[in-house]
Structures are given as structure tokens and as C-alpha cells.
Nucleic acid binder design. Structure first.
Lengths: 241, 241
DNA sequence: CGTCAAATTGAGGGCTGTCAATCGCGGTGG
DNA sequence: CCACCGCGATTGACAGCCCTCAATTTGACG
């Protein structure tokens, strides 16, 4: 499934070292198609907090996440928020076959994106079934993740939610590593408020549970954001599943 | 997108009046392909409670739901359960490109299914991109629904969850109707215990909230299962979004 | 050193869970 | 026909987890 990468003849400069060409959707494209897509491609950065798509806004560009973390949120009419997904490099960001977005995408950290017109991608998906296949695989992974979080949201305690969250970040924060790899030290990509919105909790409960994990010597916390997991097994034992 | 249906020449008898050929994934197939698929197709019924796929079990057949409701559940190690999806006719039931299931599928009501070997479908998806496209569209809808429920699970109160649930059933229980149609009287496809597992609540809380909706004359309840929504707008007003 | 936002900590209350008793309905058998 | 049973649903009392509100601390930055 991983694309051979011996010669890079004819591949756009932008794409040569791009992770999306290896594990992302662009791996389905041949050099000519990469050239065609890259004509309307824009690579750019977005600062933490920048809104990338907005609920009920029209969407005319999709993106690959090249680095950083993007959060997908939904908001109720009275302001309550829920984060419904986190995307890491080299995830594909966008909802094909729908002009209006039903959620908001926001840069949770500084991010690098590679974006392209929605219609270009949808046309190429028609012409190149492998591309649509890659998108399907990505969306199936997102669906699996969404369902895992439904269990956490509906049935786990606050302590279990926090443990599950930390494990999930440990699995995904390193863009180079494979799916089963877990780092034991990392910077949280989310603030306490965002973690609360992700786990269906309040800021205070998130803080209390993190403090408790630190008190029990399961993790260390430096500068509020940096987490060192001392005992991965003990953290996993507290995740509920 | 809806398939023309003037002549039915060459279409397998089983498929002629099948809803999956109109709004389901089989709409992507031409008569020859339908014949090919129908060779390894089995149509069968399953009683309420019958397990259709099991967590960690191998999956060698996918299905279309022709009637009834299928529930998708996940279970934590200590027995806590969460329903992570409901499938109505003519939904496609299965997780392509993965031999092992990560969830359990169970007949919530008596259901009719049309099943076919996983490998046959995956091969046809390769040969017929339209079919893969249909699967993608279905999985994108499931993802949208999963994210809507994440908001409910994480941020809605018990009362709002119940109201949202009733509205969702009203939208989906009638297989013939379109997506924006809502019926005002229907039989609940789930028991109180199942509703609780769907909404991340307990049986008692579900019962109390239904009783309250009845007391406020928003709904009527006959025989525990039959619901008549007296005031759809007032129910929607209590759904939170 | 002062300012400000983010995070922590504490006290108290409410929503929902837990446990237990009762109700209602359908089925079975006398 | 009626008593009995079994299961799901309802109702009540109480407790606990998490939320709310508020004060304090911490850390980043000028």
C-alpha cells in the first residue's frame, strides 16, 4: 500500500517530500496528476485559532494537513460546543459532495496546509478511482474514531475520558510514526477548555483529573502543556476499555 | 443521481422491487452486474436480538438492510454498552477493507437483509467505481450522523437527548420517505434499555424524561412502544440545537 | 514588576445514577 | 375465567459525580 519512492522525476517540487504523497490521499496520484493538481494547489500556514471552514459557510477548498492539529467543532444554538474530531498530518480535511459545511474547522495549533479547489478534487476523484478509494479509507478511519469517542462520551467517567484522551494524543501526535506507535512525552495540542469541549466535560473537571493523574505519578505536567507519561500501562489501565 | 427505472429487463427478480437498487448502493450497478452479484446474494430475515456481526469476529459477508432497524454497539471490558449507530433501510451494513469487526451489529427489530460475500463486493468496488462512490456517500452520511450524536452525548441534557432521539426516529423510521420527512406517529424500534445505551443514560432517566414529555402533552405513549408526537415544533424546541 | 489570560483549587448544589419497590401487560396453566 | 408468573417500564428515595460559581495561583509577556 505504501508508494514506492525511488525516483521523483516529474513530481512537483512542492510534493516531493510531502507526507500526503506517502500516507495521505495524494499517494493515489501519478506524476502527471500531481502536476495537474498542484497547478491549483496552495500551500499555506494558519496560526492557532484561525478558522479554516465555518459551519453553514460554503466550502470551495479542501486541504491536506501537513503539520499541526485541526479541530472539528459543532456548536449548539446557545453556545455549547463539542469537538467532534481532531485531524493530524497527513489527514485529508473536507466533506466531499456537499457545498455547505455542517461543522467548523479551526487550527488547534499552528498548522501547515496544502489546499486545492473542491471541484478539482471531485473531478479527479471521478477520473481516478484510486483517489476516491483513498478518501474512502480516510473517511472510514474517521468514522471508526468517531464511534470510539461516542463510547467515551456516553459511557466513560471523567477520569477514563482524560486517560483515553492522553493515549489518543500519544498515538497521533507524531506525524512520522505509524498507527501503533505511542510517544511518552508530548505537548498537548489543546487548551484545557478545548479538552473539555472534546470530552464533554468542564475546564475544572479536566484540570482536577489531570492533577489527580499527576498526584498518582502516572504523568508529569510541565508548563501546563507538556505531558510526560511515566507509566503507559497504568494510564491505559485507567482508560476504561 | 436517482436511477431511471423504466425497464427492468435482465434485472434479477430479487432486485426488481428492492429499495437498495433505488436509494442504496446497488443503484450503481447495471443489470449484468446485478446478476453477477445476485449469484452470491442471500436474502434472509433475522429476529429481534439476533447478532449479525460480532466485535472481534471475522466478517465475510456484508448486507443491505431491506426493512427493520439494526443497531451497532460497542462494549467496554466491564460491560458498559454504547450504541454507536442505527441503520435503517436501505442502508449498507459493513466495514469495507477490514476483515475483523470492531463493533457488534444486532437486529433491533425483526429485519430483512440482503447479504453478499465481502470479497465479492470489494472486487466489484474495484471494477465499478460508481459502486465505491455509493459506499463513500453512505459512509459520509454515517460520519455526519455520528458527529451529530457526539454533540448530543457530550453536551446535551437528558431531556434534550430524548427529544433529539425521538426526532431522529421520526425522520428515519419510514423507509419510503425522503430525508426531510417526519412522521408523527411510530413504534420505537428500541427498548428503554437500548435507548439508554444509545443516549448514554440509564433506563430510569429515559423513562422519567419520556414521562415528563407525556405530562407536558408533547407526546402520547401507547403500549410503551408506540409514540404519537402531538406537537413536532415543541418537541424540536426541546432538542437543544 | 505589573498585567492578563489560563489553569488550579475550593465550596456547594443539581442533574443523573443507584437501588429498591411497584405497576402493567402478556402468557401460562389450573 | 381467573390466578399466577415474568419481564419491561415506571416511580420514589437517596447518593454521588460532575457542574457552577468564585477565589487564588501560575505562567507568559511587556
Amino acid at each position: 500500500m505504501v508508494r514506492e519512492d525511488i525516483h521523483t522525476t516529474g513530481i512537483p517540487v512542492l510534493c516531493v517530500s510531502c507526507e500526503a504523497r506517502h500516507r495521505g490521499i495524494c499517494g493515489a496520484l501519478n506524476p502527471d496528476q500531481l502536476v495537474a493538481l498542484s497547478k491549483s494547489t496552495k500551500r499555506h500556514r494558519a496560526e492557532t485559532g484561525k478558522e479554516l471552514m465555518s459551519d453553514c459557510g460554503s466550502v470551495d477548498r479542501f486541504s491536506n494537513v501537513l503539520s499541526g492539529v485541526v479541530k472539528l467543532t459543532k456548536t449548539l444554538s446557545d453556545g455549547r460546543q463539542q469537538i467532534v474530531g481532531l485531524q493530524f498530518a497527513p489527514d485529508f480535511l473536507g466533506r466531499p459532495f456537499q457545498a455547505e459545511s455542517t461543522l467548523t474547522a479551526e487550527a488547534a495549533t499552528n498548522v501547515e496546509l496544502c489546499s486545492f479547489p473542491r471541484q478539482t478534487l471531485e473531478r479527479m476523484m471521478k477520473e481516478q478511482p484510486d483517489l476516491e478509494h483513498r478518501v474512502l479509507e480516510q473517511k472510514l478511519r474517521e468514522l471508526d474514531q468517531a464511534r470510539d469517542w461516542m463510547v467515551a462520551l456516553g459511557r466513560k467517567t471523567a477520569a477514563e475520558k482524560i486517560a483515553s484522551f492522553l493515549l489518543m494524543i500519544a498515538r497521533n501526535i507524531d506525524p512520522a510514526a505509524g498507527p501503533e506507535h505511542r510517544v511518552t512525552a508530548f505537548d498537548l495540542p489543546l487548551s484545557r477548555a478545548e479538552i473539555a469541549d472534546f470530552l464533554g466535560l468542564t475546564i475544572e473537571t479536566v484540570s482536577r483529573q489531570l492533577t489527580r493523574l499527576r498526584g498518582d505519578n502516572v504523568i508529569r505536567i510541565d508548563n501546563n502543556r507538556h505531558i510526560v507519561v511515566g507509566d503507559l500501562a497504568r494510564l491505559a489501565a485507567r482508560s476504561g476499555d
